[in-house]
């Protein structure tokens, strides 16, 4: 895990989550903007997955439980996909709120993953 990448990712996931929740509560159905923001959060998670798999090769090892780390990461990867399909099927404003809830959950899970990687065993 790379610290600056993680921080940027948490910031983007939080921003995307707040954006979707606000637009959803304003009554917007899922749009390219909110779907795109969620897709960006998902792509960054995939990047994080690649980074995390490769990092130990370069001597950047998790201090905490790898099992716990990957359960978080895989769960986080599933969230934008699940809610994204939901938003495609059900085009109401509540789907936009749900996209936001998923992005905010991802932000929290990333924070927790950072703790596991950098702090837990230290």
């Amino acid at each position: 895990m790379i610290a600056w990448f993680l921080i940027a990712q948490i910031a983007i996931a939080t921003a995307a989550g707040v954006l979707c929740v606000i637009l959803g509560l304003m009554g917007r159905k899922p749009t390219d903007l909110t779907m795109g923001a969620t897709a960006l959060v998902w792509l960054l998670l995939l990047a994080q997955l690649v980074v995390s798999v490769l990092a130990p090769v370069f001597g950047n090892r998790a201090t905490g439980s790898l099992l716990e780390f990957y359960v978080y990461l895989i769960s986080a990867v599933l969230l934008p996909v699940g809610t994204g399909f939901w938003a495609l099927i059900e085009r109401t404003r509540w789907s936009t709120v749900i996209l936001g809830a998923a992005c905010l959950s991802v932000a929290i899970m990333l924070y927790r993953m950072g703790q596991i990687w950098f702090v837990q065993g230290a």
């Binding site: 359960v71 978080y72 769960s75 599933l78 809610t83 109401t92 509540w94 749900i98 809830a101 998923a102």
Partner: peptide, 23 residues
């Protein structure tokens, strides 16, 4: 519609609880 948000939050909580207990 709000019920859908409730279901989504339940789903996330179910995922979180399952993940933690699995670990």
């Amino acid at each position: 519609g709000i019920g859908r948000v409730l279901i989504a939050v339940y789903g996330v909580l179910a995922l979180a609880a399952t993940g933690r207990s699995f670990v």
